[in-house]
């Protein structure tokens, strides 16, 4: 019984991890290629979730909503890049932090203006509702299992895109030497817009998929954004592989920590006290993990430094 619970929690951790990967991948690509820190990446996550919820509510079709979330987030990302972000590449990180913080205010309050302060609800599509029986007799929600599948396929697709396609070659060349690929005739500003829109679409996809598990509300992006930063710090900035490993590590540590720490503490503490101490410590666990990685490898697990 308790082993089955543990496996279920491990799957939840994996699901959480792959969704974090979708966020972290865009951030780390944008940082690796353009050298830009984008705090407004969480807003793109929120835009994806709101677009999906609004279109799904209007049409009654989750899949149309999902397509809308990809389109809306990619469009918002491209617009953001064309109007604001491209003025920031040559600036220092402080200006980038401020300008993208300002973008968060604009997007959050703009969304509140349009949709109001109450959360929207997004239902899991009927075809994916309900549990599925896994080998070993574990009942696990089908939707979460699909999320794991989607996340892992997107990761595989991204590795293929970066490693095997012409666009990927350009992206890697852009990371290595932006002047040189410009001199070789690649339109850098278009490449930057494409990379930014790609990262935005991934964030929007994550927002829409997770939006069906949680409520869709203003400010939902920022906690995820900060976790994605933790993921990137652990994995190493600019590394897609690092983002994947870091995301799964963070997802697993967080979920299993919340499950196991209260149990571990209750072996030598009074139950209610163990619950609160365990919960408080579990909420800090991933940051402790990050601190440990920093002590051992300041550049992250897969960082170049």
């Amino acid at each position: 019984m308790s082993l089955m619970l543990l496996i279920e929690q491990a799957l939840n951790g994996l699901q959480y991890g792959v969704m974090l990967f979708l966020m972290a991948a865009g951030l780390t690509l944008v940082f690796g290629v353009m050298g830009l820190i984008n705090l407004a990446h969480g807003s793109l996550y929120m835009i994806g979730a709101f677009a999906c919820a609004a279109v799904a509510a209007a049409t009654g079709n989750f899949w149309l909503g999902l397509a809308a979330s990809l389109a809306a987030a990619a469009a918002a990302g491209a617009l953001m890049e064309l109007t604001v972000i491209r003025r920031l590449y040559a600036r220092d990180h402080l200006d980038q932090v401020l300008a993208t913080f300002a973008l968060i205010l604009v997007f959050s309050e703009g969304t509140r203006w349009v949709f109001g302060s109450f959360p929207l609800y997004l239902d899991i599509p009927r075809a994916l509702a309900g549990p599925v029986r896994l080998p070993g007799g574990i009942d696990y929600p089908l939707y979460r299992l699909v999320l794991i599948g989607v996340g892992l396929s997107v990761a595989a697709g991204l590795f293929w895109l970066i490693g095997r396609t012409r666009l990927g070659i350009r992206i890697r060349a852009g990371e290595a030497d932006r002047e040189m690929i410009g001199a070789l005739g690649v339109d850098i500003s278009r490449l930057y817009t494409i990379v930014f829109a790609l990262g935005a679409a991934l964030a929007g996809l994550a927002g829409a998929l997770v939006g069906a598990l949680q409520s869709v509300q203003v400010g939902m992006g920022e906690p995820v954004l900060i976790l994605a930063f933790v993921v990137i710090v652990i994995g190493g900035i600019g590394s897609i592989k690092g983002a994947l490993v870091g995301a799964i590590l963070v997802g697993m540590t967080d979920t299993l920590g919340r499950f196991l720490l209260p149990i571990a503490f209750s072996t030598f503490m009074e139950r209610s006290q163990a619950m609160s101490v365990g919960a408080a410590l579990a909420s800090m666990l991933i940051y402790i993990l990050m601190a440990l990685v920093l002590v051992v490898r300041p550049g992250g697990l897969f960082g170049r430094a």
Binding site: I37, H93, V230, V233, A291, L294, V295, P298, G299
Partner: peptide
């Protein structure tokens, strides 16, 4: 122990902790 963009993310993360 780090600098630049790492420093921003890490201070942000510890604050959130």
């Amino acid at each position: 122990r780090t600098s630049g963009v790492y420093f921003i993310m890490i201070t942000l993360a510890f604050g959130q902790m």
